[in-house]
Nucleic acid binder design. Structure first.
Lengths: 98, 98
DNA sequence: ATCTTTGTTCGTAATTTAACGAACAATCAT
DNA sequence: ATGATTGTTCGTTAAATTACGAACAAAGAT
C-alpha cells in the first residue's frame, strides 16, 4: 500500500536525481554523455576508487535506468540509456523552468 | 586532503542532485518553484509525514542551498533560493544537453 | 501570566549507502 | 590445459539517511 501524494513525474525525477547524487556517478554520466560510451576499465584507471566500488556505482546508474552495459568480452562497454536519458532531460527541463 | 578528480561543477551538480533525490524534497521544490514561497505548515498539512521529518527534509534543502527560510513569527516562510536555483539550472542544462 | 500555535531539536531505531579486499566467473591468449 | 585480464559478487564495516514521537523554544493571543 502506497500513500501517493507524489506524481509519477516527481517520483521518477527523484529517482534519477538520487542516482546523480554522487560525484563519481556524475563523472561517469558526464563522460558517457560526451563520448557516448566507454569501458569500465577506462573509468577504473581514472577514478581513485576500488574497482568493486566503481562496479557498485555503475550498477546504481544501471538500476536507475540512466546507463546500460553490454558485454564485449572480456570487457564491458557502458553507454547512456538514451531512452531514459531523454526522459530525464524532459523531466528536469520541465522542473527547472519556471 | 582531497583527491580531486572531479570538477567543481560535477561536485556541485551532485550536491544539488542529492538534495533532489527524494520524493518529498522534489515535491517541495516543485511547489516552491510554482508559487515561489510557502509556509512549512501548509506542507505539513499536505504531506503524510511527521512534522519533524518534514523539518529535516527542509533543512537538507536549505543546507544544499536550494531553498531559504525566513521567520514570519510564528510561522516560517520558505522560498526558493533564487541565486542557487539559477546555478542549478545552468549546471543541469549544460549537463543534460549534448 | 498562561495558553496555543508553529516549527526545530533531540534521542532513537531501521535501513540504505559507500567503501574495501577477497573470492569468483568468464573470456581470451599461450 | 593454464594463465592473464576484466568485471561482478560477497562479506564486512562505518557512516549517512529516513523516520518517528517527545521535548523544547519562540511568538502571539487571551
Amino acid at each position: 500500500m502506497e500513500v501517493t501524494i507524489f506524481t509519477d513525474e516527481q517520483k521518477q525525477a527523484a529517482r534519477f536525481a538520487k542516482a546523480m547524487g554522487h560525484p563519481v556517478r556524475m563523472y561517469v554520466l558526464d563522460l558517457l554523455n560526451k563520448q557516448s560510451c566507454c569501458y569500465s576499465g577506462d573509468l577504473s584507471d581514472i577514478l581513485p576508487i576500488a574497482k568493486s566500488t566503481l562496479s557498485q556505482h555503475l550498477k546504481e546508474l544501471k538500476d536507475a535506468g540512466l546507463i546500460q552495459g553490454e558485454i564485449e568480452a572480456p570487457k564491458v562497454k557502458y553507454c547512456i540509456n538514451k531512452e531514459n536519458w531523454a526522459k530525464a532531460q524532459k523531466l528536469f527541463q520541465a522542473f527547472l523552468e519556471y
